[in-house]
């Protein structure tokens, strides 16, 4: 087991380097550097510009800048934001819980709806329900997040007024962050009104961000279940005289979950990518929105650090999923 983790971890190093290099180069391809963007139209004397650039190390050759950055990262220093002058890591960690909360709720939504939908569709294969689930999930999968988010806001927030338009919490409330998760923090201080408000604010972003994973989970569950339901051991389970609930919900599902959990885990990458758009649409104060702002301000260290940290999170989750796969699948667990 330990060897497995170490092998996997060693594969992460080139990925890290690649991600860092790509972000580093891409952000520099965008016209305008941090100082030009901040100074804007006002103009500034060339001497001052050169001096600022020198202070930030932007006058160095690219390869040197990159090596300096990597050196910093390796010693645990992600640099400071050019805009706020706070350490990048600290900014990220302050905002990350909001993103995790949203991503978690989206995944929960996708699983809670997608698993049963996929199971029922497989059991009632060829029925109108099956066709409905398949059709909807195809639609959901190809739904452009931005358009979908605006559509839901227009309908539920603007026209019907059922849900808030943006943010995490109503302005009436202020809750001191403890864990950073609004649903937990509001409960910790016993502010039930704030809890409901936080929940209300979560609904639309959760649906928007969860739509694609929902489609993937439903499809994957259906196909995994269809495969498993044709297996010999399902016939054995029926031959024991077990009821359908036990045959489908225990014998079949337990096997189908192995690929489904993997797929759910691999959705985390998609989810964090989607979070960037979703957070922007709903002004959700998470790392996604922060990254977009960092691009606009050409805040190189913030953007590089943010992308690196998100990539690390995705890789860590994927590693976890691999381990979980071994736990779920007895054939793998004992092979090692």
């Amino acid at each position: 087991m330990l060897r497995f983790i170490l092998t996997r971890a060693s594969l992460l190093i080139p990925t890290f380097l690649g991600v860092t290099l790509l972000t580093f180069l891409l952000i520099r391809l965008v016209p305008g550097d941090p100082i030009e963007v901040r100074v804007g139209e006002r103009g500034i004397s060339p001497e001052r510009l050169a001096q600022f650039r020198h202070e930030l190390g932007l006058d160095q050759p690219l390869w040197k800048q990159f090596l300096d950055y990597i050196g910093g990262v390796l010693s645990g220093d992600l640099g400071t934001s050019l805009v706020t002058h706070n350490p990048v890591l600290q900014e990220f960690l302050t905002l990350f819980p909001a993103t995790i909360e949203l991503a978690f709720m989206a995944m929960l939504f996708a699983s809670v709806v997608g698993l049963p939908a996929g199971i029922v569709a497989a059991v009632k294969r060829g029925s109108w329900f099956d066709h409905g689930v398949m059709g909807l999930s195809l639609t959901g999968y190809s739904m452009p997040i931005f358009w979908w988010g605006l559509l839901l806001i227009l309908l539920f927030s603007v026209n019907l007024g059922w849900t808030p338009v943006s943010g995490r919490l109503d302005l009436l409330y202020y809750v001191e962050p403890v864990t950073g998760f609004m649903l937990i923090d509001t409960l910790l201080v016993g502010e039930y009104g704030a809890f409901w408000s936080a929940l209300e604010h979560l609904i639309l972003p959760t649906v928007v961000l969860g739509t694609i994973p929902l489609a993937v989970v439903a499809r994957m569950t259906r196909s995994a279940m269809l495969e498993v339901l044709g297996e010999d051991y399902i016939r054995t389970a029926r031959a024991k005289g077990l009821n359908s609930r036990r045959v489908v919900g225990l014998h079949a599902l337990r096997n189908a979950l192995i690929p489904v959990v993997t797929v759910i885990g691999l959705q985390v990458g998609t989810l964090l990518g989607g979070a960037i758009l979703t957070e922007t649409i709903f002004s959700w104060p998470g790392v996604g929105k922060w990254l977009i702002e960092s691009i606009n301000r050409r805040d190189y260290p913030a953007l590089q650090g943010g992308v690196l940290l998100i990539a690390s999170t995705v890789m860590a989750v994927n590693l976890l999923v691999d381990l979980l796969y071994g736990v779920l699948n007895p054939r793998i667990r004992h092979a090692r």
């Binding site: 297996e231 010999d232 051991y233 016939r235 054995t236 389970a237 029926r238 031959a239 024991k240 005289g241 077990l242 009821n243 014998h251 337990r254 096997n255 192995i258 779920l328 699948n329 007895p330 054939r331």
Partner: peptide
């Protein structure tokens, strides 16, 4: 029917390797 199947009438299948559930 299920009260008879698996209790009073039981069956052994051809393929032992695939007839048992790998997860239990």
């Amino acid at each position: 029917r299920r009260r008879i199947t698996g209790k009073d009438v039981a069956m052994v299948f051809q393929e032992p390797m695939t007839s048992l559930n790998p997860c239990f």
